[in-house]
Nucleic acid binder design. Sequence first.
DNA 1: CGGCATCCAATTCGATACTG
DNA 2: CAGTATCGAATTGGATGCCG
Lengths: 121, 121
Amino acid sequence: MAEKENLDKAVCSVHHMAVRDTMDILNGKWKIRIIASLSFHKKRFMELIADIDGIAAKMLSKELQELEMNGLVTRSVLNTKPITVEYELTPYGHTLKPVINEMAAWGMKHRKKVMKGSALK
Amino acid sequence: MAEKENLDKAVCSVHHMAVRDTMDILNGKWKIRIIASLSFHKKRFMELIADIDGIAAKMLSKELQELEMNGLVTRSVLNTKPITVEYELTPYGHTLKPVINEMAAWGMKHRKKVMKGSALK
DNA sequence: CGGCATCCAATTCGATACTG
DNA sequence: CAGTATCGAATTGGATGCCG
């Protein structure tokens, strides 16, 4: 029984450490939203600004760089004039889709409660 | 084809809005970690502090209050001396488990890359 | 268009000290 | 033990100007 308890603790601990690792990659206010926005199509800088309401260009730029450094997003500069830049999820970035999809599913299910919750603020 | 494109945009938009709603509830640096920590057992304030390494008492207190306001967590004061306070996920809070579990699954799969990524910083 | 640099305001975060 | 108060630091945000 003490063993079972220890196993229990170990499972819980591993689980929580894994969540922490994921959150380390997805740190910052906007990363999850950026990945969600890119999970269907590649997008240009301006499209991301329009899609992610509330984000400032400075923050988008900064968090895109961090995502790129972590290998989740690629940045492609196209030879147009004026310049065009496309951001796209890498295959590695796409592995986050199940996470994003669960979030979207939860958000849709609990939309009403979310509204109520935000009204309480 | 134009219709298909519009449908595409609509699906994408709804998906992204749902993610935004979820992130509105889970705003702040620590909420997901707190919920992950509570997803197995109810815990006391000090246990949460110990479990979520790096969090300050002030932030834990603040984010727990927000989670409580949004109906995700309950706070119970026990008549012991000194006082004991237990935090527990509500049934509503438990509906976030699939989200947390996906995060944990991703973190475990990509642990090596996460390490590499953090080394790059 | 897609940024970066700068300055400044607002918000968030964290360490320490203190209370019931 | 479970917080709150306070202060200072860090992060975030907006506005503007500039550049290729």
